[in-house]
Design a protein around this nucleic acid. Structure first.
Lengths: 345, 345
DNA sequence: GAATGTGATGCAACCGGTTGCATGTCAAGC
DNA sequence: GCTTGACATGCAACCGGTTGCATCACATTC
């Protein structure tokens, strides 16, 4: 076979020792070396110490791949997101990573770029080498997801499929609060700038807007911004202004930020003549003016998802779990009283 | 042993077939099945077809882990970044991912959170399961990096260590252009808002500022923003205004954006009374006012780095490679003529 | 028709760990 | 002193692939 599995591409072999070499050097069997690392309670304290000492001297590190082959536990989990570049995800990724780390796991990251086919490809490539998967804002259809879930523990984020463990960021309360906030400021006509039709979050937000607006007797129009981005938000400004509404609530912060830029370009002042609310709270105070938004705790979602995955991997968890994370409104400076000329119509 | 390595945590076993089962079902040896997938040119066309047909029917997929054990090729690469949440990295990650994908590789993502110890831990955990590593803005010391590089092909991004393949985003020309731009607008005193001292990019940018300013007879002061972020940028505003400069060039866009917020809070108008230049061009037009910045092609860096890693993994590449990516100034709306009262000193 | 060559396939060892079971040792209990 | 049992360790099979080498069938050549 003549491998040199552990030499760099270039020079020195710098072979890493195997279990056999440690066994020989410390005068015990391979089994004993193995147990010194994975089940030390089976051995004499003295033996463990001696083996570990020799191992340390030789620079031995158990080969994760070989171990995975015989135990089926590779110590890896996969995280697939729909768009790394969307500021919603980095905090989520970071938190997921951190949680996995604490459990001694490595994270495979996949970026589907909103493309179901790519997502399916990634899952296929990952699934053989991971113990579990987290799919954030998956664009896969239900059937595919269910199939993958039979092969590996799987947790969804912001996707609501019965029988599969999922973490849902429930923005409905926050959105409702936002509508209430706008109503109190005197707005009677508002726009919802909507995101991907296949997105669970979008459906949830749209419904919350509708419900709450109806309750308070506000009129709502929907304007699309697809795919959700700064640019599509900016482009939506014209249509929104033309529709005569005095406030808008956007699918996410990025769209809201774009919308504000579009409004500025049309000389519509925020919040003096128009109010804007975002969603996710991923931009903090960095917009101009600082954005009133629905805080979505995206980092928590990553943390919780990996946590649930872990407990599922460790055999626990029989029943289905549907973990909801709540949200709240963060009022900053992009919302203000409805302009007089339009107020109360 | 009684594993059921491929059942989900819950119910049905849904066993994935092994090479032996395919062999039996198609009436050939395990070796032949193996070759049908990894070296089909060794077999009759008819045999390959028959084996693959059976395999397809059974839902057989070669076990990546087992393959890795015997060949040493796991089909994985690692990418470690210093901060996923910094907008500099997502495009880089995305591009790296895409490139790896095309080569059929999976990506392990690590986030060191600017902590060398964490970074070292991650490398240790990854190195046994990957064929190569990309370290972006590594905070590891040179000795560690060299050691890892002897074990696996390794490519650095924005870190300049002799003898190790590296991709450097050369912002010096862009920074020089920025200084020239400010000089032409009449600024005579400027500030450099500096980033991490251990960062190669920071050193490079600081030097470029100094060199070009000296050439044009501008005075430069340095003000730290550490760690580089929106908040530290904002906090630096007071000191910068007090120092009497009329323009600042920041370590990165995030710091620049924070600085602009800090200036706004002090009622200093940008660009009317103060000019700001960023670095990296990761925020596009989304700041207010849109930021004049040095474009850094971070996505290209990810793409190129993985490309170099691939060629290194495939045995090629004897000599050392030091790939430079150039930069240029993007002028938007955060820079303008020096205010009169201060101009010409 | 025997010798030779060629190309497809199988055999069996191997990668580096883990683990069920057998063995061996030693102390306690009768 | 012998049985019993607990406990530490070793043996050898196994995980699911890959691959060097042997074998075998068949075609070619003289």
């Amino acid at each position: 076979m003549k491998r040199d599995s552990d030499s760099g591409g270039k020079g020195r072999p710098s072979i890493v020792p195997t279990i056999s070499q440690v066994a020989k050097a410390s005068g015990v069997s391979r089994a004993t070396v193995s147990r010194a690392f994975s089940r030390p309670e089976m051995l004499t304290e003295a033996t463990v110490r001696r083996v570990k000492e020799v191992a340390g001297k030789l620079g031995y590190v158990p080969n994760q791949v070989a171990r995975a082959l015989s135990t089926g536990r590779h110590g890896n989990v996969a995280l697939i997101v729909s768009d790394v570049a969307n500021p919603f995800f980095p905090p989520l990724i970071r938190a997921a990573q951190l949680r996995a780390d604490q459990a001694g796991l490595c994270v495979f990251l996949g970026n589907s770029d909103e493309d179901p086919a790519r997502e399916e490809l990634l899952v296929g490539r990952f699934i053989g080498q991971v113990e579990g998967l987290v799919l954030a804002s998956s664009r896969l259809d239900e059937e595919h997801i269910r199939r993958h879930a039979t092969r590996r523990p799987l947790v969804l984020i912001n996707r609501d499929i019965e029988g599969i463990t999922r973490v849902l960021i429930d923005t409905a309360p926050g959105v409702a609060a936002a509508i209430a906030h706008l109503a109190e400021l005197g707005h009677r006509h508002i726009a919802y700038v909507s995101g991907p039709t296949t997105s669970w979050s979008n459906q949830q937000r749209r419904n919350a807007v509708r419900r709450e607006a109806e309750k308070r007797g506000l009129k709502v129009i929907a304007v699309p911004a697809r795919p959700p981005s700064y640019d599509t938000g900016r482009l939506a400004a014209t249509q929104i202004v033309a529709s005569g509404v005095t406030a808008a609530i956007a699918f996410d912060d990025l769209v809201a930020q774009g919308l504000m830029a579009g409004l500025a370009a049309l000389d519509v002042e925020v919040p003096k003549s128009f109010s804007v609310v975002g969603c996710d709270d991923v931009l903090g105070e960095t917009t101009y003016p600082p954005l009133t938004t629905v805080s979505a705790r995206c980092a928590d979602a990553g943390d919780v998802a990996v946590g649930l995955l872990l407990s599922q991997m460790n055999g626990g968890v029989s029943g289905e779990i549907r973990h909801k994370l709540n949200s709240h409104l963060v009022i900053r400076a992009s919302t203000g009283p409805a302009p007089l000329k339009r107020r109360g119509r």
